[in-house]
């Protein structure tokens, strides 16, 4: 055997041996997509930009048929007020569906409103919230019938025709994102407006926000400007300690926000 031939053959053998065994398996396209899908939806909220107008909540309720009279919502806005004498107030009256029109803090149906001296306010800000479409969602884990599930493009959905209404998922979500739909009587939550985003539209809330405090992106598309922010800037997620790996990222998240 000539030296050149020997070299050639050796290279072929090495190359052959380095093909992983798994490559010889039949390829399941669904698995491939799940392992490396082109689309994985994520959300970005800039709390500095939010003014608490509540347009997003209104738009969401309208788009997704959650009655305005019902005290539940797929998305909501929280107001945080810290006074100089170190007191903390939080509220979200009717999920802020009509915005924050009142300077007083809502302490609950039976406990009235709290007046705060404007000169005493240290810092104050708004935090919009919604389902985080967690990477490892405890809500889908606990569903006894598999009626709630995660799609391959990263959205957590509920099958209204199969949910038995046990409420286990509502209990399992550490973010309070879920509730029982007042007329459908099944578990309900934010869908990232799946019916819109899969058609190339924005979600209703992103669309309604006049200050661009809410944005959506495909986190696998590194050229997307929103993805760039998530990848390059300092962003945080809610309640990291539960290990659910939220896919809604926040700019300007205070540690007191829970």
């Amino acid at each position: 055997m000539k030296r050149r031939d020997f070299m050639k053959k050796t290279i072929v053998v090495i190359a052959g041996a380095s093909v992983p065994l798994s490559a010889l398996d039949l390829i399941d396209p669904k698995e491939v997509l799940a392992a490396n899908p082109e689309i994985h939806w994520a959300f970005l909220i800039d709390t500095y930009k939010c003014v608490g107008c509540g347009f997003c909540v209104k738009a969401c309720k309208t788009e997704n048929d959650i009655p305005f009279e019902a005290n539940v919502s797929r998305t909501w806005v929280e107001r945080y007020v810290y006074t100089k004498d170190d007191r903390r107030y939080v509220d979200s009256p009717q999920a802020a569906q009509y915005g924050f029109t009142e300077a007083k803090i809502d302490l609950g149906e039976h406990f009235g409103f709290q007046e705060i001296d404007p000169d005493n306010v240290g810092k104050a800000f708004f935090v919009p919230k919604l389902c985080n479409h967690c990477e490892t969602p405890p809500c889908t884990q606990v569903c006894p019938v598999g009626a709630t599930y995660k799609t391959d493009d990263g959205v957590v959905l509920v099958d209204r025709s199969w949910c038995i209404g046990c409420g286990y998922c509502i209990m399992a979500c550490p973010f309070g994102a879920r509730f029982f739909h007042p007329t459908e009587h099944v578990a309900d939550k934010c869908t990232f407006c799946y019916h819109r985003i899969t058609k190339g539209l924005e979600t209703a809330c992103v669309n309604a926000c006049p200050f661009s405090a809410r944005k959506m992106c495909n986190i696998r598309d590194i050229n997307d400007p929103v993805t760039k922010i998530i990848l390059n800037e300092r962003v945080g997620v809610l309640k990291d300690e539960f290990g659910t790996r939220p896919q809604a990222f926040y700019i300007g998240l205070a540690s007191e926000v829970r």
Binding site: S92, G108, F175, F179
Partner: peptide, 13 residues
């Protein structure tokens, strides 16, 4: 009955 700050979707389910 809710008192102080309770998330909008929280109830005693």
């Amino acid at each position: 009955v809710k008192e102080l700050f309770v998330l909008p979707n929280e109830y005693i389910y």
